[in-house]
Design a protein around this nucleic acid. Structure first.
Lengths: 142, 142
DNA sequence: CCGTATCCTCTGGGATACTG
DNA sequence: CAGTATCCCAGAGGATACGG
């Protein structure tokens, strides 16, 4: 990636003066970011209420090394925050920042695109299932 | 990719009975597809009106080998169609199918996400520039 | 449980050169 | 112009083992 395709290689936080001029050329960076393996999967999982490292690793069938790396990236990009709890054994929760939550719209559109014919009812059900799963976890905390 | 993460490895056209049940489990496939390097860039370029092989290669600063491969994938997925014209030298146009066009919503959301603060005005201008470019090409044909 | 460290394989994809 | 053919290698990422 240090070759010719440099326009897409830079990260968000390296962009000059993010607030100044809404520049169309930021998009390639977003494409590159979302076009990076596992990122969409992970974001989707977080949106679905999964917050735990192992949980996500199991869900995506993704090994810890890769997941840790991706999460670190997501943290750098300001999409995810780590919530450490002083507990034994250690318990960490990953949560989406506002910027990360904003990706719900994107993911939502992807889901729509995946199932154009079928009604959204089936999805509702599954969303609720997942939420329930997440709530079970939350109950364990509070 | 023939290792453990198989749930994401299968392609769309391999999915059983696409029309039957809108299954949530199709999403990982979409994440994997959109999460594949260059695919979003290419789709975005096509949406912006770029249709030529070399055009896209230049725009994305992407070498021909990779672009050819990706386009072949996109064709297999039913997202793109090749329009060959009997001309010398050969001229080919890549166009989005309905399924491909449907991705405009997704890309649009990504663009929104990229520039949350700034108004959409700046983008309009650039869109128009691009369109003009595309139209120049079209005029050359018909 | 949540990672980090190591090792190692496999492939995405860049550079370059060549055809119809 | 629109690819195909080769060569080649950095790096993604899986397996495994270990540490706090």
């Amino acid at each position: 990636m240090v070759h010719s395709g440099e326009q897409a290689a830079r990260a968000f936080h390296e962009l000059p003066e993010a607030g100044a001029q809404p520049n169309h050329s930021d998009c390639p960076a977003a494409y590159h970011f979302l076009g990076t393996r596992w990122n969409l999967h992970i974001i989707s999982a977080l949106l679905d209420g999964y917050t735990r490292f192992t949980e996500i690793a199991l869900l995506l069938n993704l090994n810890s090394r890769t997941l840790a790396e991706r999460l670190k990236h997501l943290e750098l990009e300001g999409i995810v925050v780590r919530q450490e709890r002083n507990q034994i054994p250690v318990r960490t929760d990953y949560e989406l920042t506002a910027k990360g939550q904003a990706l719900r719209e994107v993911v939502s559109e992807i889901q729509k695109w995946t199932m154009p014919a079928g009604g959204p009812e089936a999805m509702e059900v599954i969303s609720k299932e997942r939420r329930t799963y997440a709530e079970r976890e939350i109950l364990q905390i509070g």
